[in-house]
Design a protein around this nucleic acid. Structure first.
Lengths: 135, 135, 135, 135
DNA sequence: GTGGTCTAGACCACC
DNA sequence: GTGGTCTAGACCACG
């Protein structure tokens, strides 16, 4: 599985990793039972400290996305995290408002935001492109 | 104008304030020339340190959203700040992906997200609901 | 609030801290809204690395026992963690079996275990005694 | 004799095996002189590495619970191992406190825990239920 | 002052 | 090889 992090991003490295793994699960590129790269392996690949990757894994485990088996590795959980639907919906509504407010300030209207959303939908199914994101 | 902050939110207090004021301008609830509460007033209302509100106002002023007139108060600017359209679009695309990934994990699909977005659109025109916030 | 850790214990330090805080909440010695010592403070008091205390706090936050407010401190949550009652009961039954099996191997019977349990009940309400636990 | 292990459990595999055999002896389901499955047999049944089962057997033998007779197999010892009563009691007290703290957080009180304990007592005499375990 | 993040390096237990 | 824990030290942003 391909991952990329950007140290200049304001989002912490461990959260960038979390986000990409969660997106991969959401997008179907990681399925339950799949084995993740060991945190050491991934840290070499991303050229960051092993603990930083481990922290991402730890939090994902606390959230119920993945589980670890000592000496064997880390795996995508069979059961997607049990979510409180009402709470999630409230959260989504809040995020949707932030997104829209952002869009308005760029002079976009609702229709254009929906278009962007549809593009994003296609991207998530495909995974991130393998080029530098920005320096 | 009504504002609410949540000290437990990831987003810093001063940015929560900035976001709400910018949203209010975007939503048309604050118009150019409108007077904002003084930072002291607002700090009392929100039960936070005056410096925190001041910082929000300072940054909004630096961005060109509001301007202060010594001895008179703080006012919404006539001209909205010029925005870097390409940069904003990139940012929006990223946010859209986060929103979608969140939604997928709650079992929602693209269509449902679009529906939520349309609701949010109507809400922004009306302003935030007065939900309780933890102190 | 008083805490003590024992580096020789097989339970990791950060878990010893977690356990004591959770017990303090369960025992009523920490109430919702109470502020915990900062992780730096506590690390000095316990003579361990700040990160170790922070890790305990982080996991307690993930579990919903406490919440942090940047720049202000860490507080006991208003809402005790939402627990899946059926799942918790299963877990308790399993733990009860382990406890009993242990007891049998020491030649104790059910009645004696119940007695020990009642003693433990009194202790949790009081908090740990302020003496060295064992070296 | 029926055993089950869970690779995701905190407790190492070899200790899970040890615990279940010791419980079986404590519960009377294994009596002195009974023959255990060979470590190879058991490893196939549990779908884990043979070395892991061997380690469990080795440690149980070191503790005096079982003994191996070359070419014949592994058998439950006649004499149960002498236990350090004071140390065991301390350990039990600690475990009892953990159990209680867990219970309190689920909203149970001492009386209910005692009830669970009595149920567990009846179960140990019968052996574990054959619940599904993740692979 | 507070919490948030990251690093480099160590040691251990398990499989 | 894997994950699990801990340390000592650094830098940043927030209030």
């Amino acid at each position: 599985m391909y991952l990329a992090v950007n140290p200049s991003d304001e989002l912490p490295l461990y959260r960038q990793i979390m986000r990409q793994i969660v997106e991969a699960i959401a997008g179907g590129r990681l399925k339950s039972g799949d084995r993740l790269a060991s945190h050491r392996e991934l840290s070499e690949q991303l050229v960051i400290a092993p603990l930083t990757v481990k922290r991402a894994y730890d939090e994902l485990e606390a959230l119920g996305f993945i589980e670890t088996q000592r000496g064997r590795g880390t795996f995508v959980c069979a059961s997607p995290p049990p979510v409180d639907r009402a709470g999630r919906l409230d959260h989504l509504r809040l995020e949707a408002r932030k997104l829209l407010a952002d869009a308005y300030l760029s002079g976009l209207d609702l229709g254009e935001v929906v278009k962007i959303l549809k593009d994003a939908d296609r991207e998530i199914a495909r995974g991130p492109r393998r080029e530098k994101e920005k320096v």
